[in-house]
């Protein structure tokens, strides 16, 4: 089933099309929801709210972005409700923002260990890190989605990288 067929089917309230769409995006969205909230129950709530809104508002999808990007934007908005007020995120010491994760990420660290370190980051730093480094959003997009300044987004990302780098270094020393 093509994306446009899926959209048309969901718009008509077709249960099969809704299920296919859910199956196509459920893992990616649930994974992102878990990384943003740091809790499986919260991730489940966010996922359900997201898809209910997707099916309700699918007629408003203008295909300016891909369907996946549209769903992801809804999910981030839903996840934001689980956060503390992002505007209150504390500004962290900035590292050079162009410091790429690949430059300091050791191949020796396993993906699951890296995931654990990511999940230990404070909410603001974790959220910005996930959206920018993992999902590929720009600071301006993240700032708009979360309702924070670009400066806040940059400082949170810097702090996340600094914290991760330190944590990974510590785990190597052990």
């Amino acid at each position: 089933m093509s994306e446009s067929e899926l959209i048309t089917g969901c718009e008509a309230g077709n249960g099969i099309a809704q299920r296919v769409l859910y199956d196509r995006y459920k893992t990616a969205m649930y994974t992102l929801a878990y990384r943003l909230t740091g809790d499986f129950d919260d991730a489940n709530d966010v996922l359900q709210d997201t898809f209910l809104e997707v099916f309700k508002k699918i007629g408003q999808f203008r295909q300016e972005a891909t369907l996946g990007a549209w769903i992801k934007a809804i999910l981030v908005r839903k996840a934001k409700r689980k956060f503390k007020e992002p505007k209150n995120w504390v500004l962290m010491d900035e590292l050079p923002s162009d410091a790429r994760v690949e430059d300091w990420l050791s191949e020796s660290i396993g993906a699951e260990a890296l995931e654990r370190h990511i999940l230990t980051l404070p909410e603001g730093a974790r959220t910005v890190f996930c959206l920018i480094e993992i999902e590929g959003y720009a600071h301006a997009e993240v700032a708009q989605m979360l309702g924070v300044s670009e400066g806040t987004s940059k400082s949170q990302l810097s702090y996340a990288k600094k914290k991760l780098k330190y944590a990974i270094g510590q785990s190597h020393e052990r």
Binding site: Y30, T31, N44, T66, A69, L105, I134
Partner: peptide, 27 residues
């Protein structure tokens, strides 16, 4: 399963999580 995959290579190796079946039932 995301057609718009902009993730860097290192991020693509991170774990993926599948929601419980009950999640769809609720929806």
């Amino acid at each position: 399963d995301n057609p718009e995959n902009k993730q860097p290579k290192w991020a693509q190796n991170l774990p993926q999580y599948t929601p419980p079946a009950s999640s769809w039932e609720v929806i």
